[in-house]
Design a protein around this nucleic acid. Structure first.
Lengths: 214, 214
DNA sequence: TGACAAGCTACATATTTATGTAGGTGCCGC
DNA sequence: GCGGCACCTACATAAATATGTAGCTTGTCA
């Protein structure tokens, strides 16, 4: 089993040093890179042999850790980014995950658990501190709360709705569906009734919110 | 520190028994309830002193574990539901979390890790098997894929866009913003240019897809 | 100070839309 | 076979929208 190569991106010297020491001492680990800023990491990490995992602080000088994730992933697609932060608020968690982080640990994580997390992420997992995991679950739940309940729209109405969402007019949509503009108007009425709206754009908005369209 | 009371809902006798034995033997744990179906759990769990944590199988006879979560949470709001399943597919994970599960473990979880997970969930965490955690992160990311990149929309344009998404007409929106319909028309043009669209509903659709609206 | 951007107002017109009314065809279950 | 539904056609009209043109205020920034 090859060793896990970890890059540390952290501006506080003592934190960075003790992390590096911990990882170097860990069995099966190496810590070939440690940087004090995202800019430095992007400039200096060897393109031919980058790290497997990056342990990234959020509060970095210059570019924030979150902003840097996307750049890091762009340059090193294989790299697994794990956030290591003192902050566990929804906003930061959200941003970090969307930017491409696949793990999020708080700085209170005990050393043994940190090494375990690094193993976990390099094995395809997504280590999170318990509090963070709970926030992720809660945020997750917020996204599609009721699921798309019975939409009662007929297939034809659904097709029309999709075309509207793609920016079609009655005329172009009618051509697309092979029906007349009048008929499109007719279907629109039924859609409006069912969605309880009174205009095309309101119907589109509602369709998106109900999960009928994406 | 009071003990953690765990309810097991699992139809396979041997699995259920060995889980119960494991938990009873764990320090700080009790296992006052074990049921073979969701229906039984809903009927028989003491309303006056329910468990703290429920360990729920998905593939139950009768009502599935997922369907039961919402009922369980409705009746016992304090109860923390943890799924314990052989399946870790996106669909089930998604359903379970949305239904109210706050943990998701695979049946391959080693006994020690299982007890640790139960402690974690009762302390406000959300234990997940590594594979599951990774799926959750990936699913999470799908929801707001690129984050709302530089939308270049001015605050006024943004306000207008929000009103459109709420079903407003030019006229009602202009009243809402305290500007004239003409001005609304003017702003619409700029919005259309920036979003590269040519109609109100197309703009709304694009705004939703870009994450500008919700 | 002068260019520039954001924001606003105004007028005009061709298109698109919302909505009313009135009716026709084909499939399904009772 | 009859009622109901999905689906379609058609005509009509008031309202809303898309887009062109033209010009005015601010505040910022070089």
């Amino acid at each position: 089993m090859p060793e896990i190569r970890v890059a540390i991106i952290e501006d506080q010297n003592d934190t960075r040093d003790s992390l590096a020491a911990l990882i170097q001492a860990g069995e099966g680990f190496a810590c070939p890179y440690h940087f004090t800023s995202m800019e430095e990491a992007l400039k200096r990490m060897g393109g031919d042999h980058p790290a497997d995992v990056a342990l990234v602080d959020i509060g970095l000088p210059g570019m924030s850790g979150i902003a840097g994730i996307s750049l890091l992933k762009e340059r090193f697609p294989q790299l697994q980014v794990v956030i290591l932060s003192v902050y566990g608020d929804d906003e930061r968690i959200f941003q970090a995950i969307c930017a491409g982080a696949c793990g999020y640990l708080l700085k209170t994580t005990p050393p043994a658990r940190l090494l375990e997390s690094l193993r976990e992420v390099s094995a395809g997992g997504s280590p999170m501190s318990p509090e963070v995991a709970r926030r992720v679950i809660e945020l997750f739940r917020q996204f599609r709360p009721p699921a798309q309940h019975a939409c009662n729209l007929t297939p034809q109405e659904m097709r029309l709705l999709k075309l509207l969402g793609a920016g079609h007019h009655y005329k172009t949509a009618s051509a697309e569906l092979g029906i007349s503009v009048h008929t499109v108007g007719f279907h629109m009425r039924r859609i409006y009734e069912k969605l309880q709206v009174h205009s095309k754009s309101e119907a589109v908005a509602k369709a998106f919110r109900e999960g009928l369209l994406r």
